[in-house]
Design a protein around this nucleic acid. Sequence first.
DNA 1: ATCAATACCTTGCAAAGCAAGGCATAGGCC
DNA 2: GGCCTATGCCTTGCTTTGCAAGGTATTGAT
Lengths: 117, 117
Amino acid sequence: MDRIEGLIGKWEVQVRKGLLEFVILLALHEREQYGFELMSGVARRASLDVPEGTLYPLLLRLSKDALVSSRFEPGDGGAPRKYYALTPEGRTALRAMIASWTRLNHAVSHMIAGAYR
Amino acid sequence: MDRIEGLIGKWEVQVRKGLLEFVILLALHEREQYGFELMSGVARRASLDVPEGTLYPLLLRLSKDALVSSRFEPGDGGAPRKYYALTPEGRTALRAMIASWTRLNHAVSHMIAGAYR
DNA sequence: ATCAATACCTTGCAAAGCAAGGCATAGGCC
DNA sequence: GGCCTATGCCTTGCTTTGCAAGGTATTGAT
């Protein structure tokens, strides 16, 4: 069943679309963070690996949409860090996403329960 | 906040990626169904509108990947219907998706709870 | 000076959702 | 027969995202 594993892998990539944006905003709701910090935090707390090639374009989009703001700060013995924080609009969007996600999740849970009842 | 509504709308489109495939497979796990039946059933039971331009390419992909099989049957006073059913491989894939989704969902729920604690 | 670690960014490709439009079948009606 | 409507399936073109691969800049240690 190696073929199916491949299919599931591709499916998981699709499921991550949108979800990663959601998770990053959730992480930033707690506190301002910079790129690497977000990657390690999300990996630790949600077991979600967000590669750099995904994270940075995502953060650029969020900035362009004004859901997050950013500022540079000298790094702790390393390259300078770009800290991201939620804007008020970002908080509004996050609330809407949580509502939407919760609704979706209930619907899916209901269907899982129904399928195996 | 009309702009944010637009952003959320686009976000929801992204979140549906992969999720619709999952929901269709769940629906087919209960019983064999044809296209329109899937659309109305999923709309009713999960409040998810799956437009035709999404559904039929999706079903074609599932067929090509051999997760579902299909057969034509004369319609009940109308055009012939194409009935889809899960294959054994489809059932295997569905089990894997449920496991993956459940895991993801716990992670996200945890982050939502953490963000607003 | 060189090396490694930290940290950010860009490019090119694959994949999905969707609006818009098209095609075919069947039955009812004149 | 000819026309209309409803049912039902499919295709095209566009947008958006995730990601691997590779690149750049800063800092401190050897």
